[in-house]
Design a protein around this nucleic acid. Structure first.
Lengths: 258, 258
DNA sequence: GGACTTGAGTGGTTTAGACCATTGCGATTA
DNA sequence: TAATCGCAATGGTCTAAACCACTCAAGTCC
């Protein structure tokens, strides 16, 4: 991970951009990191500062970037350690549970809360209901091997699934939808973007506020094209990687442009 | 964008986590930002610092996060401005060019360099060649309406496409592959993860080093399943959002778990 | 008019130092 | 033995201050 476009540094003909110290330090630390096995510890911030002859602030800036990239783990009061690498999540309508299992991890999921509220106009449009109609909001914490990985917030139209709030638990939502309402999922549209962790998310995920996250929204429809749920999931950016397998569109399209 | 899990702040029963100042400031600035039209300017860092009674460092930390989220644009020597929102890229084998056009943007693409080198074992495996075989590396800068958006680095096996280096230019690579070699793309596997900008990338994208990026790798195969190219693209995280439309797997799978 | 210089204002980097919060362990105590 | 306390080390936050690099417009010069 982290290909560095070797060779051609940066051809900005005129002024040398004067590489910041914290970047140079980051590279030296990355080098150091290559000989530390995952989980191994690094010297403290103060030690690094005097070791490299820079201020602690500069050290922290370098460490912060490495942490954001998932190459470091920092534990308050304990130390700084080499990172573990990323999990991947296949980008398709498969479930979190299936995915984790196929990676040999033990997935668990706990329901944080389930509450009923009124849909605002935007949400109503997404769920195909009227503004003000009841919506069930579910928040789940997803874990892999006991470690918090993602927070998932689903919203479903209660009118279509009366009593749904009584059926949901830590188990499978899609299972409940199928067994009690006969609903099967058809297609979905997902978007993926970057985000930073809010303090609440950070607290649940064992993260720091402001950490790099992947924000995934999913708009799911049943096999008849009716909207079923709208989900926003926040994954730890230092832990996750999404995978999609794609098939080609009509070949005629391809040859035109790229 | 930015749903804040309202209500339940953080139920950590014991100690109040003592919200950092820079976070509180961030929220106040976000509030301020709601009444500033996109492109509008904010007060300078020093002004904000004295305005809110904090140090400039703290202001900068808050501004840095808002910038990473794409809600702010900062211009060295000029000022801090309200952000513009994100573009989206459809997650399928469609081309960058098509995508931008469908969003009403004018896409351009320029070839930064094309060079031939030897494949390392990992790359050789990806491209289905022997370690040490010649590989053509192309680097492109993608723009939308003239603004740098992404850097794309493709690698193709030269043995399969002899003379390819003489055909490529600012135009369509896939077009060249089709016209000169009769190659059409079949499926591809993509991964998406977060990354931070290297100084070189930042310089090309008009970004700052360490900015939030989306790193997309694509491994493409032709219609007969032979590997065609391996691409790593770095998109500006404050500008991009990826979109995927998904179809359901076998319905029987769904009902089991979620 | 056009090109150049200058300087004020902006964000970017770095420092040194202070203090806080958490952790983990060894010493102490019940 | 088991629980508790205290302390040292670690990372986290914040400050005040200095200097750098870039931008832009006003002023100057040709």
């Amino acid at each position: 991970m982290g290909e560095n476009l070797p060779g051609d540094a940066v051809e900005n003909g005129k002024k040398s951009p004067r590489t910041p110290k914290h970047w140079e330090l980051k590279e030296r630390l990355a080098e150091l990191l290559r000989v530390v096995s995952p989980g191994g510890s690094l010297p403290g911030e103060r030690a690094l500062a005097s070791e490299f002859g820079v201020s602690r602030t500069t050290v922290r800036k370098a460490l912060a970037e490495l942490t954001a990239e998932g190459r470091l783990t920092r534990v308050h009061g304990s130390g700084t350690f080499a990172g573990e690498g990323k999990l991947t999540q296949r980008l398709q309508l498969s479930s979190y549970t299936e995915d984790m299992r196929s990676h040999g991890r033990r997935p668990t999921s706990s329901l944080l809360d389930a509450r009923i509220g009124a849909a605002d106009p935007e949400l109503a449009a997404l769920l195909g209901i009227r503004s003000g109609d009841d919506v069930l909001r579910l928040r789940r914490l997803r874990r892999a091997d006991g470690e918090p990985m993602a927070i998932e917030t689903s919203r479903l139209p209660l009118a279509r699934f009366p009593g749904l709030d009584r059926y949901v638990g830590d188990g499978s939502l899609y299972g409940v939808l199928y067994q009690h309402y006969g609903v099967e999922l058809g297609h979905a549209e997902e978007t993926i973007e970057t985000a930073l962790a809010t303090p609440a998310e950070a607290a649940l995920l064992g993260n720091e506020a402001g950490a790099l996250m992947l924000l995934l929204s999913r708009h799911s429809f049943d096999t008849e094209g009716r909207p079923v749920e709208w989900v926003r999931s926040v994954y730890r950016g230092d832990r996750y990687k999404f995978v999609a397998t794609l098939v080609s569109p009509r070949p005629s399209e391809q040859s035109r442009r790229a």
